[in-house]
Design a protein around this nucleic acid. Sequence first.
DNA 1: ATCTGTGAAGCACTTCACAGCG
DNA 2: CGCTGTGAAGTGCTTCACAGAT
Lengths: 218, 218
Amino acid sequence: MISNPYNPARIPAGVVERLPQYARTLASLEEQGRQVVSSQELGSLLDVSAAQLRKDLSWFGRFGKQGRGYNVRQLLDELRRIIGLNRQWRMALVGVGRLGRAIVGYEGFTPQGFRIVEAFDSNPRIIGQRVDGLVVRDTAELEAVLRASSVDVGIVAVPGDQAQDVIDALVRCGVKAILNYAPIAGRVPRGVRIKRIDPVLALQGMTYYLKQSAASAK
Amino acid sequence: MISNPYNPARIPAGVVERLPQYARTLASLEEQGRQVVSSQELGSLLDVSAAQLRKDLSWFGRFGKQGRGYNVRQLLDELRRIIGLNRQWRMALVGVGRLGRAIVGYEGFTPQGFRIVEAFDSNPRIIGQRVDGLVVRDTAELEAVLRASSVDVGIVAVPGDQAQDVIDALVRCGVKAILNYAPIAGRVPRGVRIKRIDPVLALQGMTYYLKQSAASAK
DNA sequence: ATCTGTGAAGCACTTCACAGCG
DNA sequence: CGCTGTGAAGTGCTTCACAGAT
């Protein structure tokens, strides 16, 4: 669609959430050697209607061939460019406790271009430790280090009562995207993105539907 | 609102997502000793408009007092009842690798009433191991065990290429809610809920907004 | 005077349906 | 003939704004 001459903020949030899923599915189709895919088929793999998929893509351009479908490789490249997956992203982790260690060890980040390049904690026992090749620094140094190091994303894995302070510090360093594992909402100024990873919230969003036909009755 | 005489499925999904957040914020207000809160104040703590908050609650009843606001304790109790937080939920974990171990060790589930009561893996080296008080069973036994044990939620923490098979098995056992940590979309039949915990997807949903004002330029 | 509960209006996303291209 | 791209219609969530209760 040309009616959106690059104003990225005007794209519906739902579209932006779906793009990475399209990309991931296309990547797996590409591995399988598929060259062409229709909106129908790609959509059905993701429970998205064919019309929705085509409409989503139409915000960014015209990538398909009528009567044929989409070239898998080409659409994947376009999506990667649009989402920003064609570059490396530098991340700083704050909080290297049990959860933080699991995050550092997570193998899913690197292959997608996300790399943790700094780790901070405020516990003297943890500061100075080497975790997966990173030396844990004192959270007190966070602002000094990040102003020099230029990081794209902050990952918050501290207890809830410290999380907002950490978020504020990251924001002061110019970090524009935060992945928040702490169990609080987390307030950020306009222009900064924050996403919450909270399995308990996810569970609680499902128990609502479960409670009538509850399982211990099975 | 009485226009919804208990058809839980007709409640907008966004409402159901927000209820647990309201509950969590109310819980923290209660700890602080607050007795009354207005829609204005509760909303501002969560970046939700006062009107939205009131409308959300109106799907379930009338919990406030005009001119005064909401009784913190009472509203929290009502929400817990509505969401189903006033009971224990039994969960089965499938996949006890690095990620699975982190999930078992996560301290956030128990205080909210979520308990992992079974753990499965298909790796012979892991089967039989004791992890945080649980003995890991063979995934091959999953269906037999779960048909006896009655579990409310399945947690999938296996590699992507095994995830759909595990999901299918859980569904066959009558599990109606699945928390999916695997990097695939995961298809379930109607009537089964699935939620994905995928930090990479969350990151990719933010990089879209970052790419123009990218950080390595800072 | 304050703040809830809620119809009605506004707005945004999704689906429809078809022209048009391969 | 199949499938995309897209205005237009449809649907549903959010915001508005105010009557009514305390």
